[in-house]
Each structure stands twice: as structure tokens, then as C-alpha cells.
Nucleic acid binder design. Structure first.
Lengths: 198, 198
DNA sequence: GTGCGACTGGGACGACTGTCCCACTTCGGC
DNA sequence: GCCGAAGTGGGACAGTCGTCCCAGTCGCAC
């Protein structure tokens, strides 16, 4: 095995862990499975990380920090806010369909974090990040549609996050694209009503 | 230990398993933990069930079959459909607040079922049941409000399930009652728009 | 009451887990 | 070239997991 500084090994192990969690679930993400995925030995694992828990915590932090603007409306002007929001949510839906395992992994990591008091803040941080990204999309959409939010944007954002979460969960179970699109439409409808003329 | 027929033991073990999953998560629901919760010996477990997998499958089936009308609007007439739906969703929210661990357990069981192809149908059945209950509530609400659904009720129902799912997930993370109420309001608003005068 | 089948308890099994140890190799600075 | 620190490999550890076995006990039908 090539010699790799511990910091790079940490990164490689986190990537390997994410792949294992996505493919087989967090319960199967054992130290040996992660190490095999990364092509390393067990000793390298515990040289880079004190424990498996530390790795999982780092994984959550990494994956949350990396979360990108998924729900970004395509900014063709001349569209109503409702249309912008709907195409934004549908954009997220395409992202979900392109890599369902990733979103399922995110869901599992949240549930995992929810199960121990000391990890609960990680779940909160994850959702704070989602809300932050949602806020930005909402501000952008309102500005393109030339309207103003009548409800505080953070509140609208939390509602948007809840709606996309519900869409994700139900689609992962049913894989029903039409149902997901109906949810997107209803969500865009409800949210757009929280804005008014500037 | 008193002598108990295997069928009763199965029921007792399922109840014990539900308590363990609720309290500590499915990963901690080992045969020994379940047996301790039920006050039995390991042998009794494998006398009643062939394997832990069989127990978990039975647990999901039981708990889904038992799922009751949570989102039932209080039927005071004279309310608009929107109001009926909102109070219905808020009713579910109270149910969630009263026993968060139970809903978290349901979520975990879904995720668990989603992870193996042969268990995936259990997750589908769970959501089919949710949709069925939602349909009934929606029909009832429309009849009390004296309106008709313009969108097929099964479609409305799936959207309602997605919305309540999102509400559940975000509230379990943030425990933010106001945010949950905002989601309920927005969801009721969106759904009520799918109905019109009879 | 006797016998047989249903049920029980405790201990054991092999597999798998996270973690650790230790002898070894490689590298950068001198 | 040398040396200490950084990084590596393989094997071992104790603990926990699901499952199984077996000797024993109870209760009911006859």
C-alpha cells in the first residue's frame, strides 16, 4: 500500500464510508467494510481515526457541508413565482432520481444522529443547512418573479424543507414519479401563496 | 416462567420488540434486548420465531395493521374544507407529540424495510395503509364541508401523506412546534385547493 | 397415573464486531 | 548514510451477535 498522510487517509475513508452507507446502509458500514471499500488495512483506519464513531460523525459533517444548491430554480424570467418554485422542486426531484441512494443515505444518517443525544446536534445542523439553502432559493425566486415574501423567509424555508423531505421519503418507498410531481405542484402552490406584490 | 402457548409468546415478543425499537432504535433491537424486555429466555424466542428477521417482519406487519385513523378532523360543521384539513393535520401533530418515539420507530422500520429487496413490499404496504387512512379522512372532510374533490382522491391522499411525513421528519429533528404548525397550515391550504363546489 | 407433546432454561457454538498491539517499512531532515 | 517519526500489515483480543442444542418440566388426553 502506498504511503498516504493521515489527513488524506481520513478523506479517503470518509468517501469510502459514504459509498458503503449509500450502497448497503449504515448498519452495514462496519470498519471492515469501509476499509475494504477504501482498499486499506484495519490498522490504517485506526491510525486515521480514533474510532468508528468519530468517522461517522466526520462523515455527517462532511456530507452536510458539501450539500449544494439542489433546489435552484432555472431563472427564466417572465415566470410566475409558483412556476419558479415548482420547477425548482422538480429540479430537486431530478437530483433525487439521479442518485436515490445518496438521499437515502442522508436520511439514514439523520435517523442515526437522532438516536443519541450527543449526536442530535449533527441532525439539527443538517437541517439548518437545508433551511439555509432553501432560503437562498426562495429569495432568488422572489426576486426573479418580482414579488416579496409576506411570511418571514426562514419560516417559508422550513416549510419547503418539510415538503421536499416528504416528497423524498414517499418517492423512495413508492418510486411513483407522478405522485412526486403532484406533491411538487401542491407544495409550489402553497408556498407561492406566502408572497405578494412587492 | 409461566408456560405460555407459542402464539401468545409471539404477540408478547412483538410488543416487546416495538418498545425496544421505539426506545433505543432498530439497531439495538437485538434478540437479547427484546427477550429481556419481554422477560423471557432466548430459547423461548426461537421457539416462537424461526429467526430475528421473521420477528421484525411480523413487527412491521402488526404495527401497520394497527395504524389507526390519526388524521381525523373534528367534524364540527360550518368549517371550511381548509379549516377541517388543518385541524386534521394538527390532530396528527398532537398524536406525534404525544408519542414521538413511536413515529420515529415507524420511520426506522420503513428505512429498514427499504434496505432489502425482499422487505421492500413491507414498506410499500405501510405507505399504502397510510394512503388508505388519508383517503378516508379526505372523503369525510369533503363531505362535511360539502365540497367535491376535483383531483382523484388517491392522488390527494398521497400528497397528504407526503406532507405529514415531511412534518414528522422535520419536527423530530427540530422539535419546533411553530414550524410544524406552519407546515400544517400550508399543507391544508394546498390540499383544500384541490376541491371545489359540489 | 401415565405418557407424550408442548414448552422452558442455561449454556454453548461460530461468526462478526470494534479496537489494539507490535514488528516492520518508508520517508524527510540532517 | 542515519535516525526518528510517520505510516503499514497482520494477527489477536474481548465482547456481542443470531442461533442452536439438550436435558428437563409442565399440562392435558387417555
Amino acid at each position: 500500500m502506498a504511503r498516504i498522510p493521515a489527513s488524506e487517509r481520513r478523506a479517503a475513508l470518509i468517501e469510502a464510508a459514504l459509498r458503503v452507507v449509500s450502497r448497503r446502509g449504515i448498519a452495514q458500514a462496519t470498519t471492515r467494510a469501509i476499509v475494504a471499500e477504501a482498499g486499506m488495512s484495519l490498522a490504517s483506519f485506526h491510525y486515521a481515526f480514533d474510532s468508528r464513531d468519530e468517522l461517522i460523525d466526520e462523515l455527517i459533517i462532511t456530507v452536510v457541508a458539501r450539500e449544494q444548491q439542489a433546489v435552484i430554480p432555472d431563472l427564466s424570467p417572465g415566470q410566475s413565482l409558483r412556476e419558479l418554485l415548482e420547477s425548482g422542486i422538480l429540479g430537486y426531484f431530478e437530483h433525487l432520481k439521479a442518485d436515490p441512494e445518496h438521499e437515502q443515505a442522508m436520511l439514514e444518517l439523520t435517523q442515526y444522529a437522532l438516536r443519541s443525544p450527543e449526536r442530535h446536534p449533527l441532525a439539527r445542523a443538517q437541517y439548518a443547512r437545508y433551511a439555509e439553502l432553501a432560503e437562498r432559493s426562495l429569495e432568488l425566486a422572489a426576486s426573479v418573479a418580482d414579488v416579496a415574501w409576506r411570511v418571514p423567509v426562514p419560516e417559508v424555508a422550513r416549510t419547503l424543507v418539510a415538503f421536499t423531505d416528504g416528497l423524498t421519503l414517499t418517492w423512495l418507498v413508492d418510486r411513483d414519479d407522478d405522485a412526486a410531481r403532484a406533491v411538487a405542484q401542491a407544495a409550489a402552490d402553497a408556498l407561492s401563496r406566502m408572497a405578494g406584490p412587492r
